[in-house]
C-alpha cells in the first residue's frame, strides 16, 4: 500500500496492492483538480512589452510545456487560463471583461507583470490600475517584466491553488539568489543598495 502525496499535508490518492492487480482510490474532486492543474489551456491577452518575456517563457529554453500549460488557444471559449500580459487601458477594459466572460468555467486569471497587476508606473488618465478592477484575478506576478522564473513560480502557485481548490488571490514573492548572501542582490526601497560587491564574487 502506498500513498501519492500532493506535498500539502496528507495524500489524496491511495494506491492499494493486492494480488496480481493494483488499484488506487481517490476523491473525485481531487482527481478532477489534478487533471485540471496539468491541462491548462491558456488564452494569452497580450498587449505590451511583457509579451517578449511571455514568448521567452513559452519557448523551449524555459519550456512552459513541462507544466501541462502547453497549448495556447486563441478563442476564449476553449481556454481555462487567461494570461493578461501587459498594460490594460481604460478603453480596453470592456474588451478584457468580455473575453473573461466568454471563457467557460472553470477559469483562472493570471496577471503577468506589474502593469496588469496594479497599473505599474502609469498614474494617468488612460491606464487601468490593475485588471482586478474589472475581473477577478488568481495570481499576480510582479516584475517589469517578470523573469521567466517568476512566471513559472506563478504558474506553480496557480497549480497548487487549483489542487487545493483555493480561489484567494496569490502574489509571487521575489526570489533571492542563493549565491548572493543576505539577499543583497535585491534593491530595496528606502535602503541604499550596496554596490561594493563582496570579495568572493
Amino acid at each position: 500500500m502506498g500513498n501519492v502525496s500532493n506535498g500539502r499535508g496528507g495524500s489524496s490518492v491511495h494506491v492499494i496492492e493486492s494480488g496480481d492487480v493494483g488499484f488506487a482510490t481517490t476523491r473525485v474532486d481531487a482527481l478532477l483538480n489534478w487533471a485540471k492543474k496539468y491541462s491548462l489551456f491558456q488564452y494569452p491577452y497580450v498587449t505590451a512589452c511583457c509579451a517578449m518575456e511571455f514568448m521567452a517563457m513559452a519557448s523551449p529554453r524555459f519550456d512552459m510545456a513541462r507544466f501541462g500549460a502547453e497549448a495556447p488557444r486563441f478563442s476564449p471559449r476553449q481556454a481555462d487560463l487567461l494570461w493578461v500580459v501587459g498594460t490594460i487601458s481604460q478603453r480596453q477594459a470592456p474588451a478584457l471583461k468580455r473575453i473573461y466572460e466568454q471563457m467557460a468555467d472553470p477559469k483562472w486569471v493570471l496577471a503577468f507583470g506589474t502593469c496588469a497587476s496594479c497599473g505599474g508606473f502609469y498614474d494617468n488618465y488612460t491606464t487601468l490600475a490593475g485588471i482586478d478592477k474589472v475581473i477577478p484575478c488568481d495570481v499576480y506576478v510582479p516584475g517589469c517584466p517578470p523573469r521567466p522564473e517568476a512566471v513559472i513560480d506563478g504558474l506553480l502557485l496557480l497549480q497548487d491553488k487549483i489542487a487545493r481548490g483555493d480561489r484567494t488571490p496569490g502574489i509571487v514573492k521575489p526570489r533571492t539568489d542563493p549565491l548572493v548572501p543576505d539577499g543583497s542582490g535585491l534593491v530595496q526601497i528606502g535602503k541604499k543598495p550596496d554596490l561594493g560587491g563582496d570579495s568572493e564574487a
Binding site: Q90, A93, K97, C118, D123, N124, Y125, A129, V134
Partner: peptide
C-alpha cells in the same frame, strides 16, 4: 485636466479602489 483622473468605461468590481500605493 487632472492628469491622473480616469474615466472608466465599465464600473469597477466591488471592494477595489482606483489608485493604489504609491499613487
Amino acid at each position: 485636466y487632472p492628469a491622473n483622473k480616469t474615466q472608466p468605461l465599465i464600473p469597477y468590481r466591488e471592494g477595489t479602489q482606483d489608485k493604489l500605493f504609491p499613487f
